[in-house]
Amino acid sequence: MVNIEYLTPASPEERKKYYREEWDIKQVPEYIVHSIQEREFGFDHIGRGPNDRYKVFQTPDLLKRFLKVRTPFAAYCSVAFYDKPRRRDRWTKAELVFDVDAKDIPIRTCECEGVCEICLNEAREIVLNIIDTLKGDLSLENIHIVYSGRGYHIRVLDHNIMSINSDLRSQIVKYVVGAYVPENEYSLDFEKVSYEHFVIPFGYPNVFTKRFKYAILHLNENSDLDEVNKKLLKDILKHRQLIELENWGMFKNKIGPMRYRKVLKGIASMNMSLIDAKVSIDLKRILRLPSSLHSMVSMKCTEVKNIETFDPFDDAVPKFVYERK
């Protein structure tokens, strides 16, 4: 496992070394290779963003040649499929993507400047939670995880949702991250009944309960939540072990019902920042190409085969970094 201090920007020579000696077209995931002719590729040659866009490769060999010759600072590929990708014309479908960037997670238990082992692990937890909902509630299949260099991309290629529009993607995002406070009062014919989210072990209330628990257990005294003042935050931290023990009713009582609603609202609003929602609703987004080099941090954007055992500081470090020691 490499020390994070070695993960400094890659030099042009290191990029050459990576693409010419280490990178292999076989590392590009099958789901991209199979649809290579339908996707747009984009490149950043000098480290100022992907301004070499609208590239198309008819075969994997042509992509291979391009990368080995140009050794770009960064390589990207569209989540969208087109009949005419060179002009981004005749959009046919797009993967549904969730971008979890460790450095942008609103509640991190670490205090690092960029990313570190702790926040990357927290990003992984968020990814697992999202995937759990995508598979369980929404029954989506063909889900892939990619380590992006600073976090994770969840890429869903389920044929049932690849042609959906941005509005539906936005609804899915809000559902899986837990961006709404669930109802707690329901009207029956002659009475009103109250069910807090934590007594409903299914559907969206259950998704929200899981996200809520994650958030509460990752708060610290510097956390900033809408509607939650310092005193309330202090009380949450004081009593949160009750949630760890699934003693929800007691936690709510300790906090007080009115203040509990404030916490729910604060967490729901914060949950929208767990992922970069702009990426999820963009039907023509280009994402870092799995297998390519994230030159800024000298890490490989890597397809994750097994998230349980994946260690970015081992599995996503190019060989040239070890030679820096």
Binding site: G136, D137, L138, S139, Q171, I172, K174, Y175, Y180, P182, E183, F202, G203, Y204
Partner: peptide, 8 residues
């Protein structure tokens, strides 16, 4: 979506 009960 969040007002519907979804399962599998």
């Amino acid at each position: 979506m969040h007002e519907l009960i979804l399962d599998k």
